[in-house]
Amino acid sequence: MMDNHKQTEEELALKLFVVLSRSFQTIRKRVEEDIKTHGLNPTEFAVLELIYNKGEQPIQKIGEKVLIASSSITYVVDKLEKKEFLTRKPCPKDRRITYATITEAGTELMDNIFPSHREAIADIFGGLQTEEKEVMIEQLKKLGYHAKDL
């Protein structure tokens, strides 16, 4: 009896993994489609959004905050700098640190696109009621912490 229950738990875990992965892929695809309508790729948007909402950031720390490889950060910052949405600013106290700072053009762009991006995300998650979203947030956090502690 015990083996049968364990197999069922494993099957359920596997099914959950597949459903979670597929729904995340679909959600991510929709979010990326929205971002692309604004002339940015998802990585550029993530970096710009971080600095727009949190203020200037050390370039070395951006990767861990937006979940992209640190090797890609310089390239993304270069592209955003060429588009004149970001600028680099040396740290006066430590020459090893360079900050990425949003420009006036970057702020203007985000002022224009961020509200509709938030709306698009709300629409994407509109398949769930408020309480369902709150429960799902708690459950996914619980799952993530458990996986991290393994």
Score class of each variant (00 low, 15 high):
Leu140Tyr: 05
Arg28Asn: 12
Ile102Ala: 08
Gly127Phe: 01
Val77Met: 13
Glu84Ala: 05
Gly126Val: 04
Ala122His: 04
Gly127Lys: 06
Lys89Leu: 10
Leu80Ala: 09
Asp111Met: 03
Phe24Thr: 10
Asp123Cys: 06
Ala120Cys: 09
Lys83Phe: 08
Leu67Asn: 15
Met136Asn: 00
Lys15Glu: 14
Asp78Tyr: 09
Ile121Phe: 15
Val31Ala: 11
Thr8Ala: 12
Leu16Met: 06
Val19Ala: 09
Glu119Ile: 11
Asn112Ile: 01
Leu14Val: 05
Leu80Trp: 07
Glu49Cys: 02
Met136Val: 00
Val77Gln: 04
Lys29His: 04
Glu64Ile: 10
Pro115Trp: 02
Ala122Met: 06
Lys29Glu: 12
Lys65Ser: 11
Ser72Tyr: 05
Asn4Lys: 13
Val77Lys: 14
Glu138Tyr: 13
Ile137Leu: 06
Glu49Asp: 03
Lys141Thr: 05
Ala13Ser: 07
Ile124Tyr: 01
Lys29Pro: 07
Leu16His: 01
Tyr99Trp: 00
Lys82His: 13
Leu80Ile: 08
Lys82Val: 13
Ser21Glu: 09
Met136Gly: 00
Lys141Val: 07
His117Asp: 00
Glu119Gln: 12
Thr37Arg: 15
Thr130Gly: 07
Glu132Cys: 03
Thr107Gly: 04
Tyr52Ser: 02
Leu140Phe: 12
Ile59Cys: 00
Arg28Gln: 14
Lys36Trp: 13
Glu33Val: 06
Phe114Ala: 04
Asn4Glu: 08
Asn4Tyr: 07
Lys82Pro: 04
Lys133Met: 13
Ile27Thr: 11
Phe17Pro: 05
Ala13Asn: 02
Ala122Gly: 07
Leu67Met: 07
Lys133Thr: 13
Asp78His: 12
Ile27Pro: 05
Glu134Arg: 13
Ile73His: 02
Val47Arg: 08
Val77Arg: 05
Leu109Arg: 08
Ile62Arg: 11
Ile51Arg: 00
Val66Ala: 01
Phe45Val: 08
Leu40Gly: 02
Gln57Ala: 11
Phe45Cys: 09
Leu40Met: 09
Asn41Asp: 15
Leu140Val: 15
Gln57Glu: 09
